[in-house]
Every structure is written in C-alpha cells, then in structure tokens.
Amino acid sequence: MTAQPTDIATYNFAYLDEQTKRMIRRAILKGIAIPGYQVPFASREMPMPYGWGTGGVQVTASIIGPDDVLKVIDQGADDTTNAVSIRAFFKKVANVAVTTETAKATIIQTRHRIPEHPLTAGQVLVYQVPIPEPLRFLEPRETETRKMHALEEYGLMHVKLYEDIARHGRIATTYAYPVKVEGRYVMDPSPTPKFDNPKMHRSPALQLFGAGREKRIYALPPFTDVVSLDFEDHPFEVQTFDQPCALCAAENVYLDEVILDDHGGYMFVCSDTDHCEKRREQGHRGHLAPESPLEKTEPAQ
C-alpha cells in the first residue's frame, strides 16, 4: 500500500501491523465460511479499554482500505463520544473518508443498532460485541458451551425463553435476542434491540462481529438466513411504539426515550440520528420539532 503524504506515517496504515491484520482476516474468512460460528482470534491491545469496541475496531482496521468511507454509530447516533472517537481514530491512522450518511458508507461500525436506511450489497456492517456466547448466562463453562455448539444442543436456549414467558407472560428478552443462523449455529446478535433482528435476515450487506475482550469473531455473509428463536404459541415479535418520532414523525423505526426536564417531561425520538436528520431535511416534522428547520450540524471530528 502506498503511504500517503500525511502524518499517518507514524503508524502502520489503520494502526494494526500487517501480520495482525492477516491473522484477523483469516478469522473473518473462516467466520464467513461457517456463518454464526465463533472463531477464536488473537485479540490485540488497542488504544482504548475493553468494552469500548476493541473487537469492532480490530475488524474494521483489518478490512478498511484507503478508498473506504467509514461511518461509526453508537446506539444509532453518529455524535456520541464512542462514535466520534472511533471515527477520529480511523481518520487519523488510515486517513479514510468518514461520513454520517448510511447510504454513502462502505463500512459501518456499529454498537448495538442497525441503521434504518436499508443496507445494500457491498456494504459491510461491523458490530462491537461484548459477549459473543449466547449460552453464557445459562452455562458458564466455555468448554461446555463449545461442545453444545459443536453438537447442536440448543435446548438450553429455549429454557431462557421459557423462563421469560413463565415470569412475564411473554418473551421479555428485548435485546441480544438469540437467533439461529442458516439452520445451524445459535448466535448472539450482540446487544442490538430485537427490533433489528429481522434486518439481519437475508441482508445484502456483509455483517461481521468482533468481540475484543472475548477474542472471538463471527460473521453473517450476505443473504444468510437469520431466524429469531421462539415458541410455536409465543412467536417472535418486535417492539412497537405508540407514537411516532417527536422530531421527524417517523413510524416503524426504533425510538429512544429522551428526558426533557426535571418534571417528568420526555419525548421519543429516532435512535438513528442520520435517519432522523434526513427526514427533517425532507420536511417531515414531529410534534416537538423546532419551528425553524434545523441547520445540519457537522459531527465533531
């Protein structure tokens, strides 16, 4: 790769050394070859603490090229600390173009949301995963859970859903909702809201999952079957919201509750900030939207 005449020469391109990237790419390829299977990899120390997306950053660093356009979201938002920092990191160490627009990005690193704008073929969605093992809280022994994956013993996963129904009358799991991939591996979709599970099913984009602390990478190749687990008499369903987004009036999107004051005031707004801004630019207005059209704010770099 050609070194650019910038100040990135102090680091190797995209921070990681080439041997490490090669090792991670091998893990990614294996993950793509066996959809949903957790591939162990030699996770590196990154200049950020575990739990802040070291897995996702390593995956992104291994696949990013000089021509890529990167978008980073944190709970759907482009302008929160983690998203801003990771975007600035790659701008510095890889000198790549960054964007907040879903449609323009070639790589989207995400913490726990899938953008509302439909992804297309050629895009890569990189998830930051805290706990890759869906069976972890039911069976703490890693030796045992790996055996259960190998032998396809997934009865335990339904025990969790059974417990939900027994306690709450319905499946109360709302995020990290377990899915079955291509009829074989049960996978934790990372703590995305289950609202996003249907978007994973047969997505034309490549989806990569990196868990830095747990040293696992897994993947969903484009157009992979991703089916949420459920019971015949308690089928899987996503959350619904009573009201549209307070700023852009969008319906059928995932909303965040935002507290407005100390007197119990609140509003529900799009969790996907890019989607919300785009809609407001197009003139959609929710009941709490300010009178004058919002100036498009550039995210801090």
């Binding site: 009865g155 335990l156 339904h158 059974y162 129904i165 015949e232």
Partner: peptide, 8 residues
C-alpha cells in the same frame, strides 16, 4: 426442549 419441543 432439548429434543425439539417448541410449544410453550
């Protein structure tokens, strides 16, 4: 559930 029963 381990032998495939899926009706709560």
């Amino acid at each position: 559930m381990a032998v495939g029963d899926r009706h709560y």
